[in-house]
Simulated scan of single mutants.
Amino acid sequence: MRYDLLPATCTLFSLIMAHQKRWRMAYIVLAVAVLLKIYPILLLPAFFIAEQQSDGKLYAPTSTALKNLPAQLYHTILGCTRWHWRNCLLFFALLITVTGAFALLDFQYAVISQFSYFLQRPIQIESMGASLLWLAHLGGMSWRITYDFGSINMYTALNAFVSPLFTLLFVLSVVYILWLQWQRRMTLLQTVIALTLAFIATGKVFSPQYLIWLIPLLAYAGAFNKVWTILWGLISFLTTFIYVAFYSQILDPAHIHLPSGFFEVATIRNILLAVLTLAYLFNWFQAREQTR
């Protein structure tokens, strides 16, 4: 019934294989995770960097100063001929082979529809962007709430601004996280958790099952300190409350009427998620200290 357990489990197993330096198996399992659900492809650069670092093939920055960054990147790129590419190529070979097989049967649904779905999908009512649109609605902006793309979504005049804004925040977050990993200020496990948090927090959609992507990683990382207990506990509780208390009242997708209090609770949850994500990225309250 809960399909997201499958890619989440594969992601965890790929991390375990990476920690054991069984890189080929790690890439294979990660490819299976991507074939099950696309989001783990975000983790590929983190695995590639970790593999090169473990084998001493990646240039280690000698300075973290921004003024030295161009020179450090130049020295890193110069060493690309020494990097191990075989496992990464195997990863792409598996993706292309399996996707190509399905594309031969139906190219439109196997390839084209996947990209158009992500590009055209509007802002879903539980996402961080939806909380901003709700605040704008309180200020007098009109909106339209409909059921399409398999979820309840919001259409406003600000959609064309809010969606690219969060996409930009996501790209900047990915660059920053990989920069920290390159400088060895984040382990592979910490990088995977940070990337997943950033993806969920800045996405156009927030679905309760997205928490399943993180739960095995947090358990494996040992994220049991006070910060995680409080923030993650509240996020999980409010997400469960939203799903049980509010969605159970929406019986007819053709006539959407959101119960009173929905956006208030969702916004509180989203603020907590934003705080947790920022705390992890910038290590506020030693949020990363308990992870391996």
Rank of each mutant, 00 (worst) to 15 (best):
232 W>A: 10
227 V>P: 01
274 A>M: 14
257 H>E: 12
233 G>P: 00
279 A>T: 08
207 S>P: 00
277 T>Q: 02
224 F>W: 08
212 I>D: 01
236 S>K: 02
241 F>H: 12
220 Y>N: 14
275 V>C: 09
258 L>R: 05
235 I>H: 00
244 V>A: 08
267 T>C: 11
228 W>I: 00
253 P>D: 02
266 A>Q: 12
236 S>L: 11
275 V>S: 07
238 L>A: 07
220 Y>V: 14
237 F>Y: 10
255 H>Y: 13
243 Y>R: 07
211 L>V: 04
216 P>L: 11
237 F>A: 15
209 Q>R: 00
234 L>F: 14
221 A>V: 04
219 A>P: 02
230 I>L: 07
214 L>Y: 13
245 A>D: 12
238 L>K: 02
230 I>W: 06
262 F>I: 08
237 F>Q: 10
256 I>K: 12
224 F>E: 02
235 I>Q: 03
229 T>N: 07
273 L>W: 00
276 L>G: 03
246 F>L: 07
234 L>M: 13
255 H>I: 13
213 W>I: 03
257 H>I: 14
238 L>M: 12
258 L>T: 09
222 G>D: 07
227 V>L: 03
230 I>Q: 01
230 I>F: 02
278 L>F: 13
278 L>S: 10
216 P>C: 04
249 Q>L: 12
240 T>G: 14
234 L>H: 04
